[in-house]
Amino acid sequence: MNYIIENFYYSVIYDNRYKFILEGLRNTCLIAFLAVILGTIIGVVIAIIRNYHENTNKLPILNYLAKVYVTVIRGTPSILQLMIIYYIIFKSVDVNIVFVGVLAFGINSGAYVAEIIRAGINSINKGQIEAGYSLGLNYSKVMRYIVFPPAIKNILPALGNEFITLVKETAVGAYIGIVELTKASDIIASRTYDYFFPLIIIAIIYLSLTIFISKLLNIMERRLKND
């Protein structure tokens, strides 16, 4: 028993080591939150470009680029994308490493969000869209008032899944030295030579975060259903 208490003391309290965990938690939340926003923006834009092209045959070049983007991002490991952005693109630039994380994870998530949104748009039956056009609504009004409201309802579970994945994915940031939760536990363990508490603590934190998000999404889903 004493051994466990001592172990906990050295892992968390001694030398204010819990501060690493707090910093890690802050950075994990910050990166995940901003990357979700960035990813959603990118995803919506890409999905609209692709859908607009499918409907009107306009914007062929942008559509091609959007397809390449989705293929490349989905076809390579996110850790590799992170390293390319940090070690190649920002090689000779002094850049905030948390910002690099936001950028990499946002760009990564955008590709998945784009596909989810595209599936959502396609889930709306074509007849309703045609009815919208036949009443004189244009493409953007049809999208805004007829397609997106029910589409968002349909894709919310998939989108929630993607956000939860993103929170966990930020652990990869440790690889380039971002002090997020995983790196924080690593720093502590490298001083105490004991991984037990650092790993178990951050596991509990990750779990709490993802449970919190899925609860939040459940509430949103229920709200939308009652609408």
């Binding site: 039956n125 007849g127 036949s134 009443l135 244009n138 409201p149």
Partner: peptide, 22 residues
């Protein structure tokens, strides 16, 4: 190129009704 003004003057009723379900 802009069909909105024409379409609102030409109503259409579909076999499957196509009401906006939401």
């Amino acid at each position: 190129s802009d069909l909105s003004n024409i379409r609102r003057k030409i109503g259409m009723v579909f076999q499957q009704f196509n009401l906006f379900e939401h």
